[in-house]
Amino acid sequence: MEDFGSSALRKLIDEFSDAVQLTHADHGDATALVDPARIEDVMRFLRDEADFDMLMDVTAVDYLGQTPRFEMVYHLYATGPNQRLRIKARVAEETPEIASVVPLYASADWMEREVFDLYGIRFDGHPDLRRILLYEEFEGYPLRKDYPKERRQPLVGPRN
């Protein structure tokens, strides 16, 4: 019998044959790489049609040297069947922008702000997109791989 994650991926492929670029479901680790332009539609479909009623995590990865450079990662959870699904979307370096999923999942609010704070990826439609962990004076995005390892931006005290 097909597991829950695989059947959710199959539903997703049937619905968005043009937007889903890659899937795998090894050892219950169901993952789909989707078109970033369609992320809102995909997430809405998974929430309304596939029982994924909880957004556990939003994060990003910087693959410096690849194009597109960034990868958004969304971890979805279905509380009823106790199953998980991972959605990924690649974001270009020149225009690091993707649609916000705050209108779908309120929990995305602070997590998208964290991604914006540390990676500099902008979220269209986010209600309050500003830094959350770092201070307003901070320049740059420290979790990008090209942020200088030695660079310090203290508010008081010596620079290094």
Partner: peptide, 14 residues
């Protein structure tokens, strides 16, 4: 305490 006039020592950024 260290005030804002603390001598800033710039290390070359790698």
């Amino acid at each position: 305490s260290v005030d804002s006039a603390y001598p800033v020592i710039e290390k070359p950024i790698a």
